[in-house]
Design a protein around this nucleic acid. Structure first.
Lengths: 123, 123
DNA sequence: TGAACGGTTGAATATCTGTTCAACTGTTTG
DNA sequence: CAAACAGTTGAACAGATATTCAACCGTTCA
């Protein structure tokens, strides 16, 4: 181990299974789509946001309701709601001083519920 | 604004919609389940991992193949594969010097594909 | 008009997370 | 056996991210 071991960035491609890799590469969705998938899942990948979402499955709620429900500050909740708003997962409606939030997208709800069912089966 | 504004941790609960909040609270899945949902989605919430997964949709691959496919070091790929292994998303099989990875769970595959379709519709 | 309240926002902080680097294990093969 | 290679691992580093804090905006209502 006296020599500096230079970890080549890519595998020296003699050994790789060329033909398989080539066909897989052709079948891969484009980078943008995959980045979007990751982006979408990242939104669900935080327990504060999953808690907010499962609350909104039940009813339309104002920020104060959610904060009280989760035992968090309105500020923290508002920050997370902004993320959910930007990714079009929730929508809001202003009435007087209060802002009411609800789920925006049925698709996303279905994906989310599917995961819940998946985990329920494992128990 | 001379007084120190103390942002109460929880909303002063006179204003909250008591009955709605109560019924929502009763309907919420327990904390552990929600944490697991977040955990599951977090795994998909990284584009390196989504790229690995969509590759494994097509074929069983060794680490070197994947590294070459993604243009990344074997080390980086291996670290991500460890996460996917620990969460039971992929399984591996050792043959000689090589370690072959494939998808472990059909459920998870379905959730993932659903998201891909969801995004495809938006385009 | 101004106090009170619901909600938002930006900056600061602490924590988490992905990649790199270097070293190491285990298997094959000359 | 020793070199070569596939793959793993832990520490270190850099970038991302969630929460807090303090200030602010807009609406209501006394």
């Amino acid at each position: 181990m006296k020599e500096i071991e230079k970890n080549a960035e890519v595998c020296e491609s003699d050994v790789v299974h060329e033909s398989v890799v080539a066909s897989v590469r052709a079948a891969l969705p484009d980078e943008d789509t995959l980045a979007d998938v990751a982006e979408l899942f990242k939104v669900f990948g935080d327990s504060t946001r999953t808690r907010i979402l499962s609350a909104l499955f039940e009813a339309e709620l104002c920020v104060c309701d959610i904060a009280s429900l989760l035992g968090m500050t309105k500020s923290a909740v508002s920050h997370q709601l902004r993320i959910l708003r930007q990714t079009k997962v929730v929508k809001n409606r202003k009435q007087g001083k209060e802002v009411y939030y609800s789920l925006d997208d049925d698709h996303i709800s279905r994906i989310y519920k599917m995961a819940l069912e998946h985990l329920a089966e494992d128990r």
